[in-house]
Write a protein that binds this DNA or RNA. Structure first.
Length: 383
DNA sequence: CGCGTTTGACCCGCGC
DNA sequence: GCGCGGGTCAAACGCG
């Protein structure tokens, strides 16, 4: 399993992580029998590299567990506050009314909600926005609106757009206590994925299948996903837990030997609106002391040869470029068992590309800064 | 023209 | 049985 993962999934060229010499040995080209000391050295480096990745993965898991704990405690606290507030504000006269209507699903006490498959969600909204729309990742069809006796604000009734296949309904009404809060009550469980989950699954599948390379003209799932996450996270506190849970569950499934771990699920992309999402992303920063780097490459004049790769650090990006060059060498010289090259050969390869640039994430300004091929060549010589 | 929203009519359960 | 109130239906409406 380990060996398989290394062979198939690692594009990092671990050999180079501690290699200061400009002369490189192309991976897989040395003979199995003729250089055991070199192999041992490689094994050591592999083990060291894997150990580092393992530790990194542990840190990621700890971070996400911490995130979940923080969220859960905060959620509990908020629920308690809301409950206290409701109890405080209900007068003896009103209490009689509440006791009556509690028999309906709408006024059922929160403690009973989980038991009856009813979930209530408080969502912060713009007080001037009267639309009663709560974005939660699912598509809804409004089928009614009523003014209720206890609340001057109308109550909107929605069915899941997959009805009658999906039985879920929701009611949305502005909170009586706070004009800036709407209360969404959900009945039933969806028997399908949300649009958010669809995007996440598609993204995860795409990543697992295509590894590190993607075409420019592929669907912009990242952007869709990020926009949706940002939107939902900024409006629906419950969705935060779902996203966090989804991320945690996905991370747990990812083989830690694969290089695409947290950077794939929490890429440090800047988002103009998603402040809450941004804060979630920032939680990953201690693990992102490396600068996330995107390599943009066009190997020939044909625009179809455009592609991009992303890496967790500049050095890994440089390794990625070297690995591409080494693959090209291997393709050009299939009969040769050993191929060596020096840094000038690599420069020639870089210069021969139709286009090459690197976008390096700068944490201080939370944006990517472009770098030309001259800069890449310099970095290659350092790495 | 299709699809989602609006809105008045209707249904139903509950309390009196 | 009647009235009340929440929930649902479906025709009308409006928008892209």
């Amino acid at each position: 399993m380990v060996a398989t993962s290394l062979t198939i999934d690692l594009n990092l060229n671990p050999l180079s992580t501690t290699d200061d010499t400009p002369v490189r040995e192309v991976e897989g080209f040395f003979d199995d029998d003729d250089d055991n000391s070199f192999e041992n050295e490689v094994d050591d480096r592999m083990a060291c590299y894997l150990h580092r990745k393992n530790n990194e993965n542990k840190e990621l898991k700890e971070m996400l567990t911490g995130l979940m704990d923080s969220y859960n405690s905060l959620n509990t606290h908020v629920k308690k506050l809301m409950q206290d507030r409701e109890e405080l504000e209900s007068s003896p006269k009103k209490r009689k009314f509440d006791e009556t209507v509690q028999q309906s699903s709408w006024k059922r006490p929160k403690e009973d909600l989980p038991l009856s498959g009813i979930k209530r969600v408080y969502v912060k909204v713009d007080p001037s926005d009267k639309s009663l729309v709560v974005k939660d990742g699912y598509q809804w069809r409004k089928y009614g609106q009523k003014v209720t006796r206890d609340n001057p604000s109308p109550r909107a009734y929605y069915k899941c757009s997959f009805a009658p296949i999906c039985p879920v309904k929701k009611k949305v009404q502005r909170s009586m206590e706070d004009d800036g809060v709407v209360v969404a009550t959900y009945e039933g469980e969806h028997n399908h994925r949300s649009t958010m989950q669809e995007a996440a699954y598609a993204l995860a599948n795409e990543r697992e299948i295509s590894s590190s390379e993607r075409w420019f003209n592929s669907p912009k799932l990242d952007e869709v996903l990020l926009e949706q996450m940002a939107s939902y996270l900024s409006k629906d506190p419950n969705f935060t837990s779902e996203v966090a849970a989804a991320i945690f569950s996905k991370i747990s499934q990812v083989d830690f030997f694969k290089k695409h771990t947290i950077s794939y699920f929490l890429p440090p992309f800047k988002h103009a609106e998603g402040t809450k999402f941004q804060s979630l992303v920032n939680l990953g920063q201690p693990l992102m002391s490396n600068k996330h780097t995107i390599i943009l490459m066009q190997t020939s004049q044909n625009r179809a040869t455009r592609k991009f790769m992303d890496y967790e650090s500049i050095s890994q990006a440089m390794d990625g470029i070297c690995a591409l060059y080494e693959r090209k060498l291997k393709d050009l010289n299939p009969a040769m068992r050993n191929i060596t090259y020096d840094i000038q050969d690599l420069y020639n390869y870089i210069d021969g590309l139709a286009d090459l640039s690197a976008l390096v994430y700068d944490h201080s300004i939370q944006a990517y800064l472009p770098n030309d091929r001259q800069w890449i060549e310099t970095e290659c010589s350092i790495t």
